[in-house]
Design a protein around this nucleic acid. Sequence first.
DNA 1: CGGTGTTATTTGTGATCACAGTTCGCCCAT
DNA 2: ATGGGCGAACTGTGATCACAAATAACACCG
Lengths: 180, 180
Amino acid sequence: MTLRGIARSFDVSMTPAREAVRRLVADGGLNLSSSGRVATPELSSERIEELASIRALIEPELATRALPRAHMALIDRLQSINGTIAETVAKHDDVGYIRANLDFHRTLYLRAQAPAMLALTETVWLQLGPTMRALYARLNRTEVPHNHRLIVAALRAGDEPGLRLAVRSDVTQGLKMLTV
Amino acid sequence: MTLRGIARSFDVSMTPAREAVRRLVADGGLNLSSSGRVATPELSSERIEELASIRALIEPELATRALPRAHMALIDRLQSINGTIAETVAKHDDVGYIRANLDFHRTLYLRAQAPAMLALTETVWLQLGPTMRALYARLNRTEVPHNHRLIVAALRAGDEPGLRLAVRSDVTQGLKMLTV
DNA sequence: CGGTGTTATTTGTGATCACAGTTCGCCCAT
DNA sequence: ATGGGCGAACTGTGATCACAAATAACACCG
C-alpha cells in the first residue's frame, strides 16, 4: 500500500490520502513501521484477547446505559437488523455480516447517550477489523447469532443482568474461537 | 489557534503542524468545528462523568493484570514517583502534579503487558487533559493522594480486590468533585 | 452612538515539488 | 546456478503555492 497509489485510486492528491492514513494510524487501525511504511497490524492471539477483553468491559456498560432509554421503536429496529443479518448469512456475505453485526451493536449503544464510550468502542472495532474478517471468513454461520436474540429479549423484559450477560457473551463468543 | 501560528511557533512548515493537529483530533483531544477551526472540547459534566466511568472500568483491569507481574523494583519505583508527587504538591506545580500522577498510573499499567488497553486509557487521559488542568488548579492539595499509598500497599500484599478498589477510588475521587 | 453592508485579511484545504532514505531489480563474479 | 553488490525507481516527508471560504475590520447610514 503506497500513499501515491491510495491517492490515485481515490482521485485525490497525496495530501488528503496521507491525512486519512495517519488518522487510521492514530486510531490504531494501521501500524506505521519504522521506515514510514504502513501495514495492517499483526493479529496475535494476545492482541485479540486483549481487544476482546476491552469489548467485554465496555459494551455491557453501554448496553446497561441504553436499557432505560430503549423504547419499542428501537427494539423493533434491532430486530429488523437481525433480519438483515440473517440475509447476509444466507448469502454468505462475510463483510456484509460484519457490517450488519456492528450496526446492531451501534444502534443499541447510540441510545446510551455516551458518545466518548461509543467512540472508544468503535476504535476497538476498527482494530479488530482484520481479525473479524479472518474469523468470519473461515467460520460458516448458519443463522443469526443466538445472543442477538437474547439481547432483544432482555431489552423487552428490562432484564439488566441478562442483558449484560448476553452482550458479553456475544462479544466474546466469536473471538474466543479464533484464539484457540 | 491557527495552523500557521502553530507551525511558526514550532519552526516547521504547515504540513507537519496540520498532521499533528489532525492526529489530536482523531484521538479526541481536540474538537474540529464545522469550518475546520480547531478548539478544545467543552468539558460538560456529562462528558467528565462518562470519561471517568471509562477510567473506572479499564484501569482496575489493567492493575489486576499488572499485579502478578509486579516485582519489588516496580513497587519501589512507584513509591519514588509518589515522592515526586509530594514535591510537586509542595511547589504547587499543577501541571507537574498531573504529569507525575499519570506517570504513576502508566508505570503500573505498563506491567500489565496490555498495550491496546494502555493506549486506550491514554486516549482517555488525553481527553481529560483540560479537565484535569481545571480541576487541580482550583484544588489545593496538601499531600500525596491517599489512594496511591493504598495501591502500593495492595501491590505489596498481593491483594487484588483491594488493588481494584484503590485504583477505582483514585480514578473517580478527583473527578467526582468537579461534576458537582 | 449603534447596526449593517462591503471590503480586506486571514485561514484551512488540496496540489505540486524537491529531497533523502529505502526498496527492488539486475548484472556480474565465483 | 547462486550470492553479492550496484544503480535506478519509488516512497514518505516537509515546504511552498493557489484558491475558496470564513472571519475581521471598517466605513456609512439610521
